[in-house]
């Protein structure tokens, strides 16, 4: 697999193909598997993602602590805001839906991780539903997203414990932005700019889950991560370029993660987890959990 997104973009440009294509070829070569085989594994992931969106939208799930659940349905059916009836609102609802399923021990695809699993399905299935994009192109988009994630794993990190939430929901937003840009007809270079644009918007984001549980703020961070991805896609498709090359943006995320205080790396020792209310909810809810 590539360890530089710029190298992958250059390869796609030389071949006159797409990031999806170079990603599938590289994976086939590395793993000694056929492209068809990889595509069918991605196809299964797509089905699970769709299932999770649908499951979460029903609105009846509650997490172990009882702290999250039902908010995706509110976005679907609740009072309108300025985004009522738009694709944007639909994408936010889908992101919440998947994370509510995750928090309730339902089946999801950890892409790239369980904590950031809502962003990619929300953006990709939301766009596909609104523009009649077929499953083959969605599978391609998952390959592109996987490539971007692999580069991030190689150069920076995909773990909140190592790099804060910028490495989970931030990475997810970057993957979704690049993949969806290509899926919507953008060039490999535009997909690179979308990746960089999304990632610059999440640099420095800490990991601070209440009680160490993947619930608050994680569920909502998937919705805001998806929003950042949507903004990046819109900008990149409009021809906007980000002046710092994407590999350098990814390296920056890794560098920030390494120098991040341990309180902000999934230890629940800082950030929202350490607020008075965060501590109180953790105490109360965990006690309640033990009684059940």
């Amino acid at each position: 697999m590539f360890s530089s997104l710029q190298a992958a973009i250059a390869a796609a440009e030389t071949q006159g193909s797409s990031l999806a294509r170079v990603a599938l070829d590289a994976e086939a070569r590395d793993q000694g598997r056929s492209v068809a085989d990889i595509r069918s594994a991605l196809r299964r992931a797509l089905d699970i993602m769709r299932g999770a969106v649908e499951r979460g939208m029903r609105g009846d799930l509650r997490s172990a602590s009882g702290l999250v659940g039902g908010d995706a349905a509110k976005l679907r059916d609740g009072p309108p805001g300025p985004l009522a009836g738009t694709l944007f609102r639909d994408v936010l609802a889908r992101a919440l839906a998947v994370q509510e399923v995750n928090a309730a021990m339902g089946v999801i695809v950890a892409a790239p991780t369980a904590g950031g699993a809502g962003v990619l399905p929300a953006v990709l299935t939301g766009l596909a539903a609104s523009r009649a994009i077929d499953d083959d192109r969605l599978v391609d988009a998952l390959a592109t997203a996987g490539l971007i994630g692999a580069v991030i794993a190689e150069r920076a990190s995909l773990s909140g414990a190592e790099g804060g939430c910028q490495a989970e929901t931030g990475a997810a937003a970057a993957m979704a932005a690049g993949a969806a840009t290509e899926m919507c007809g953008g060039t490999p270079a535009q997909a690179g700019h979308a990746t960089a644009l999304a990632m610059q918007g999440t640099l420095g984001l800490i990991c601070d889950p209440l009680g160490g549980l993947v619930e608050i703020p994680c569920v909502f961070r998937n919705a805001t991560g998806a929003a950042i991805a949507m903004a990046a896609i819109e900008m990149a498709l409009a021809g906007i370029e980000f002046r710092i090359p994407v590999d350098e943006v990814i390296d920056t995320m890794g560098e920030i993660g390494r120098s991040m205080d341990v309180r902000y790396r999934e230890t629940a020792g800082g950030g929202l987890a350490a607020t008075p209310t965060g501590r109180r909810l953790t105490r109360e809810r965990l006690v309640q959990l033990k009684k059940t």
């Binding site: 594994a41 991605l42 299964r44 992931a45 699970i48 997490s63 172990a64 399923v101 995750n102 928090a103 309730a104 021990m105 339902g106 089946v107 999801i108 695809v109 950890a110 892409a111 790239p112 369980a114 904590g115 699993a117 998952l142 997203a145 996987g146 994630g149 692999a150 794993a153 995909l158 993957m175 549980l213 993947v214 619930e215």
Partner: peptide, 10 residues
């Protein structure tokens, strides 16, 4: 990266 398929949350 696009996986594993798993029961949540972590």
């Amino acid at each position: 990266i696009i996986g594993p398929v798993m029961v949540g949350p972590s």
